[in-house]
Each structure stands twice: as structure tokens, then as C-alpha cells.
Write a protein that binds this DNA or RNA. Structure first.
Lengths: 206, 206, 206, 206
DNA sequence: TATGAATGAGGATTCATTCAT
DNA sequence: TATGAATGAATCCTCATTCAT
């Protein structure tokens, strides 16, 4: 293994381990000793790859972003009617959540103001950029639907936000047993019904 | 001022101060020294009112809950058609958020499993109970609409969850400047359009 | 109840309660909140009777001292042969320990140098005084035995110390389950055998 | 100095420092800041060697135990008559106390139930084990004396306890100036006279 | 005199970060 | 470059003592 490969391996192992730890404990409670242990590297080694705990956190958030956006874009099929396209994208999103549950927190993990405030702006921007691209994909479909006369006239970007917020909000509640119990319905079903409901609202009636 | 009044004042001051600190820092990062400083009491005094940081946190979450539910219930007017009723409740919710922005986190603050795990179950339940009551209010209206033939047949509780998740999801994104900027639309407008969109989806067309 | 009687009652209640707490927890770990609770007085009230935790501690130690010495002196019967007298006193000591187990710690509780260093000398002396009087009672009997020709010539005070240390040492080990188990013998029996052994050593043979 | 040597040095320094502090202050009052200061390490370093204050305490207690038992066993000389052997062991014990005065508290330091309750049973047992081995050495000699017809018939283990309690009781009183003054005799002399007295009690007369 | 609310110093423990090897 | 030992600042919580009522 070349030196560069070794570095890449280490970096990935640290990212992987810290993603799990950050996910399980939250930023503050996460412990770099634990990260080092799980990554099978020495604690000091972490600092040869990431400047600080905060930077590591953002790196975790950003790491799968490109992959995710690429995959989401791959769901696009301009031959599909917009509402079917939106359903398809929604299904991808939901399935991706189920398969990568613990890597998913990245989409609502920008909560620690203090943390972000102390980070280089470009790192923050790279995380925000993922949201933006996802929203744009949705907005484009909605706009296409409006132009095709399938959907009522609307602000596509605003409407994309609505879809996005709803999907993430539902998924988020699924993370907490108490809220899951409160919902008392199968997440997949609610997710689908929700998209249907929004689409029915969007479609021109008659 | 009587002793009881003094105690009440202190309790409120501590709750007030800790709400701000918890809000700004999150549970883990919140610092009880800071709470004491802002509440103008000694650190030890906090412990005369709350057993631990965690209990204080839940107290913050629960403090306005009853008031909130009561007010939300006061928006009910059985003479209004269901969809107008839902709009009215939605407006109340949004306005309440604007006026009590920082007391609002209670609705999405059940996140720390470790924290919750260490608390008396009845305290956790009292927080969950607020959600439940709010959802029930919504579900009742939706059911009324379905029975009246205004709305399509649906699972009222599930649909209430959708409204709820949407409202909270939108509000939540408003807390982060980066996400606010990403949205790029006035929150009130998106909120209203969102409810309209859902109602349009719910209503029987034709 | 007169004011003075009330004061006396309170004082006794506080002493009683703190004795238990000091006994169960040790000086450092003892908690005056607990003392106040058990004594059914307010915490502040303790300070109207005792200047500080340390003074309270010494007061506990000294409180039964006079009673104890008086009782021990009452075991004296100059018509008994010295060795029987010593046996009788030993039995009293042992029985008193069994009946007042938790008030007994006073005899080996002068351990906290720092505590004692910070106390008025006369209080310390009053505790020491109890030991002294007890030792003197023993020494007198031993001297009587020597003068009567029953015992070998010896330094009575030194020998009294030996009896004393033995009795207290045995009793002390009984306070700790681990040491009790290690001993593996009935305390009363060891206590008696011990005194017999010492007396046999003291007695002129032949 | 190798890393392992460094670690060993540090460990010893921490043990040394904490022994002094525990000895001077007692478990509760002992302060780990003070320990760190005296050991010339950072406070956090202590926790790299010992899990908690309580574990450190037990480590202090146990540290010299093996050495001590080994040395005590080295005093054994089966060619000596039992009573001389006991005298010799007694002298060793006394001398060892004088030379290692502050490492000696281990023999009567099992006092804090609360502390012990919170410790791994095997650690507690290792401390108890030292007592047991010491007692066994004594008991063996006493049994030998009984079998040789030098001593009266007795329960060797019980008698060993008597010797042991006496020696420790005497030494213990020497730690407190007030009790030393009360005794008013040279400890060494009392110690020797004490053993003689017990041996005289044990020996078959005539 | 009795109360008990308030105080705030004190101390054990954690853990991100540094740095000598 | 990788290590992991050492660091020490940070923070929750306790509790003896004070003092206004």
C-alpha cells in the first residue's frame, strides 16, 4: 500500500468512526478517544487529518454529500411526468434514508451555531450546498410540472422547500422512539401519503 | 414580597435564564454557571429548585406547555368550517412561534436519548403529552372535515402528523441563518402557502 | 414546656441525630441537612446550639462521656478480688458496647487531626478526659492486684493501656463486615478469652 | 528513560503522594489537586493511572502489601521456639511500623463502608488478604507452640487475632498526639511488655 | 429564638489538544 | 508520519455557613 493509499484509508476510517460516534452521542458528548478506538488509530493521529473536533464534524457532514447528490440526480428521467418524477425522487430519498440511516443526520445537523460560527465559511458552505442542490432538483421538476400545465402556478423554489422540509421532518421524528410511538403509523406509509397529499394539492384539478 | 413569591420569582428567573442558555448552546454545551449568572442567583440556588441539569432542561421544556395547549385549544370555534379552522389554528401556531420564538424549542427538543433515558418517565411523558394534545386538536378538525364531506377520506391522525411535521419543520429551519438564507422566502408566506397546499390536497375537488 | 426545657430538648435531639449521622457516614461525609431532618429542626437551628460542624462532632463525642464514666465506676466493688473486678468491668464495657453500639464510636473517633487542630483545646481535653478516667479505673484495679500479691509487679498505667487498647481494638474490628468475617469467631467469646489471657499473664503463677 | 520506566515512575509518584495525602487527611478530606501538586503531575494524569479517587485509595492500601507479607514471612525461623518466634515477628512488625510509619495505615484503613461498597470486590479482597496472611503466620506459630506443649491449648486463629488487634491498636494510638500523651509511656516498651504479657498468659505455667 | 432560602467555595472527573518520541 | 502519554481548563454538583424574616 502506498503512503497515499494509507493516508486515504486512515482518513476514511476516522470519518467512518466519528460519524457513528457523532450520530450516537451528538457533537458535544462525542468523545475522540472513542473515535480513535473505533477507527483503530491513535488519538493523536486524528489531528494529523483534521484540525479539530469541529472540523472533523463538518467533514463527516460533507463527506457523503457529493455521492448523495449524484445519486439523487440519477433518479431524474425527463421522460417521466413531473408528479411521477417527484414520487420517484421521494422514494429514492426515503430508501436512501433507510439504507444509510446513520449517515443521514448530516441533513439536519447544522444546529450548533457556536460550532459553525467557529468554522471556515467554505466548509459551512459546502454543507449548505448539498441542501441547495437537492432543493434545485425538486424545484426543477415542480417548474416543469407548472409549465406543462399539470401543476397549478406556484413558486417552484418555495414549493420544493415544502417537500424538502416535510421529508426531513418526517424522517427526523423517526429518530426518537417517543415520537415514533406518538406517530403510531408506519413511516413509509405516512411518507407516501404525504407526497400524494402534496401532489394532489399541486395538481390542477378537473 | 412573601417568601413564596420570592421562591416563585427565583424559579421563574432560573427557568428563563436556562431556557436562553439551553436554546443558545444545546443541552450538553449549556453551562450552569452561565445560567446562574443570567438568573442573578448563586449556582447552588439552582439546585434548590431543580435536582440536576437534566431535570432543569425538562422543566424548561414543560414549563409553557400547558399554557400553550390551552391557547391552542382556545382557537377552536366549531362554527367555522374545518379548513378555516385549520388555517386559524395554523395562524395561531405561527404567531405564537414569532412571539415566543425562544420558548419554542420545546417542540423539537426531545433529541438527546441519553438525557431522556436518565429522567423520570413521567417528566418525559409530560413533554410528549403536549405534542399529543396538539396533534389531537388537529386530528379532530380533520376528522370533522372528512365527516362533513369537505375533505377526502383519510386517516385523521396521520394527516394531523403531516401538518404538524410541516409546521415544525419550517419553523425549525428558520432558526439557522444559513437555512433561512437558503430558503430565501418569507417564512410567513411559505407557512401560509404550505397550509393552503395541504388543504387543497385534502379538499374534495369539484 | 419552658423555654429552657425546649432548648434542652432541641439540643438533645440534635446531638442524637448527629451522632447517628456521624456514625454512619464519618465526619467528612456527614451532612447537616440530614442531621436537621432527623432532628426535626431547621438546619439553621443547629447553629444556634453549636458553632460549627466540628464543634457538634466533639459535642457528640463528649455527650455521653460523663454518664459512661459514672456507670463504669459503678461497676467497682472493692470487696471483689482485682481480677474478678477487671472481668466485671470488662463485661460492663462489652455489654455497654452492645447496647449502645452506635454511641460508642466516641472512643476512637479522635482521628481527624485537622478537625481537632481547629477546635478549642478544652473541648478536646474533655474527650481525652474520658479515656483518662476509664484508664485510671483499670489502673487502680491492677495496682490493687499487684499490691495484694495477686498480680506480678508491673506498671499499672501501662497495663491498663494494654487492656484498654485490646478492648477497643476488638470492638473496632467488629464494625467492619470484612474484618468480622476475617475474625470468624464470636466477638463476645474472643473478648472474654482475651481478658482471661491477659489476666493469666498478669497473675503470679504457682 | 523509556516510556515504560516513565510510566512506572509516574505511577509510583502518584501513589507516594496520595499515600501522604490520604494519610494526613483521610479519604474524604483528601484532595486530588494536592495529590497532583505533590506528585508533580497534572491532575488529569492521575486518571490515566487510576480510575477514581476510591481506586487510588485502595491502590495505596494494597501497594506495599505483598512486600510486607513477604518480609513478615522472612522473619520465620522454624528452629526458634514458638514464643521467641512470636517475639521476633512482633519486633519486625514494630520496626517496620517505625520505618514505614506512613505506609502503615493500610492495616486499619478499611473503614469507609461507602468507599468499599463502591469498589470491585477483588480489590477489597486483596487488601483483606494481607490481614489474613499476617494472621495466618501468627496462628501457625501459636499452633506450633500448643503442639509442642509450650502453650496452653487454645484456638490459634483466635489467639492470633488477639496479638494482631493488640499490636495494631497500640500502633494506632501512637498516631494521635493526644493519645500518645495520654499513654505517657514509650511505645516500644509498651509494645514489648504487651507481647510478653500475652506470651506469659499463653505459656503453660510451671 | 427558630427558620430555611440563599450562598459560593470547593472538588472529582472528563476530554480536546499538545508534543516528545 | 504515527503514537499515546500528559496536560489542565472546564463544569456539574455538594454542603457548611450565613442571614433576612
Amino acid at each position: 500500500m502506498t503512503v497515499d493509499e494509507k493516508r486515504e484509508t486512515n482518513r476514511r476510517r476516522i470519518l467512518e468512526a466519528s460519524r457513528k460516534v457523532f450520530f450516537e452521542e451528538g457533537f458535544e458528548a462525542a468523545n475522540l478517544d472513542e473515535v480513535a478506538r473505533r477507527a483503530n488509530v491513535a488519538k493523536g493521529t486524528i489531528y494529523r487529518y483534521f484540525e479539530s473536533k469541529a472540523e472533523l464534524y463538518v467533514a463527516v457532514l460533507a463527506a457523503d454529500a457529493d455521492v448523495f447528490v449524484t445519486r439523487m440526480r440519477e433518479t431524474l428521467d425527463q421522460t417521466l411526468p413531473p408528479s411521477e418524477q417527484i414520487l420517484k425522487t421521494g422514494r429514492f430519498y426515503f430508501q436512501h434514508y433507510f439504507e444509510h440511516r446513520r449517515y443521514f443526520r448530516i441533513f439536519w445537523a447544522l444546529e450548533n451555531q457556536r460550532l459553525i460560527g467557529g468554522l471556515p465559511a467554505d466548509q459551512v458552505r459546502s454543507v449548505i450546498g448539498v441542501w441547495q442542490q437537492c432543493l434545485q432538483i425538486l424545484a426543477d421538476q415542480i417548474e416543469r410540472g407548472s409549465e406543462a400545465g399539470d401543476f397549478v402556478a406556484c413558486d417552484p423554489w418555495e414549493t420544493a422547500n415544502i417537500f424538502w422540509v416535510m421529508a426531513n421532518g418526517l424522517i427526523q421524528t423517526d429518530e426518537y422512539p417517543e415520537l415514533r410511538e406518538l406517530r403510531g403509523r408506519d413511516l413509509q406509509r405516512v411518507f407516501n401519503d404525504n407526497i400524494e397529499l402534496l401532489l394532489r394539492g399541486l395538481r390542477k384539478s378537473g
